[in-house]
């Protein structure tokens, strides 16, 4: 069965993909849909949603368009989610591959190092890092990457440990391929599916972490983000619910969609689970 058909067998994953596609489309079209800066006051402050067609989701306390904020926030969320996950996957794959392939002392050392990071509560560490390096988009990406690579490293190490004793790897050793070449051209491609699944779920976690940081006022103060919108609006929840509810829904839907897609990828890529829903 082709990969796509396998994926499509999971209804949730398809729904997730549709939502995610919409979010990506909105993010891509944000500068066209809302060419104005989302920070600009464009209407009467605290305009409720669905009343004025110009501001379908209403305006916030400074008269900023909530819909514009959500569209531009999607860019920030997706950007941070993707970039920080890529960085985390790079670190995790690098360390995990070396540890799993070479084993021995180096493996011990790298795994103790990984565990050291795993013992620190991830979110507390992210807060600390962002606070130290002053909040900016770069420091947030860095902080999220630093707290999220250890699971990847452990996963990749496990894959490498099992794969390195397989015949095709031994064959590669026999024909004299170098260590790095075996790692990256023989083992890594075969370990890709779990990495992709883990990575896709990490994007969701990264978006949540960024939102939480922004909610606490540790976001990049020059970029509109969903977490920031909720953080700024939360105190006025009773007076103007729409200011927090819409960005909240945006986070919920995006994270849910990514999780569904991740689940679908897992089902489709993991041969052991292929019969699960059949």
């Amino acid at each position: 069965m082709s990969f796509l058909r396998l994926f499509a067998r999971n209804k949730g994953a398809v729904i997730g993909l549709v939502i995610l596609g919409t979010v990506v489309a909105i993010a891509a079209a944000a500068p066209l849909l809302y060419p104005e800066d989302p920070w600009r006051s464009v209407g009467r402050p605290l305009l409720p949603p669905f009343e004025n067609l110009r501001f379908p989701l209403g305006t916030d306390m400074l008269g900023r368009d909530i819909a514009a904020g959500i569209a531009h926030g999607a860019r920030v969320s997706l950007l941070i989610g993707l970039v920080s996950t890529s960085v985390a996957v790079l670190i995790g794959v690098g360390l995990g591959a070396v540890a799993g392939f070479l084993g021995g002392r180096l493996d011990d050392l790298l795994m103790r190092f990984t565990e050291f990071f795993q013992t620190i509560p991830a979110f507390a560490m992210a807060i600390l890092l962002v606070a130290i390096f002053t909040p900016s988009i770069a420091s947030i990406i860095l902080a999220i990457a630093v707290v999220s690579w250890p699971p990847v490293a452990r996963l990749v190490r496990g894959e490498f440990l099992t794969l390195r004793s397989r015949e095709f790897v031994q064959a590669a050793v026999v024909i004299g391929q170098s260590g790095p070449r075996i790692m990256f051209s023989q083992i890594l491609p075969n370990a890709m599916s779990p990495i992709i699944v883990a990575g896709s779920l990490m994007v969701a976690t990264a978006i949540l972490t960024e939102s939480s940081l922004s909610f606490l006022g540790l976001g990049d103060r020059n970029m509109m983000s969903w977490g920031f919108m909720i953080g700024a609006a939360r105190t006025m929840l009773r007076d103007a619910w729409w200011m927090s509810v819409f960005p909240g829904l945006a986070i919920l839907l995006t994270v849910l969609a990514i999780n569904l897609v991740g689940e679908g990828l897992n089902d489709a890529m993991n041969p052991h689970l292929r019969g699960r829903r059949a």
Partner: peptide, 23 residues
């Protein structure tokens, strides 16, 4: 005070300044 900073940044950028909020 955060809202005030956001408002002031917006207004100053409108008149051509380059503003970076540093919390």
């Amino acid at each position: 005070w955060d809202r005030l900073a956001e408002y002031v940044k917006q207004q100053l950028e409108d008149i051509g300044l380059v503003v970076d909020i540093r919390g």
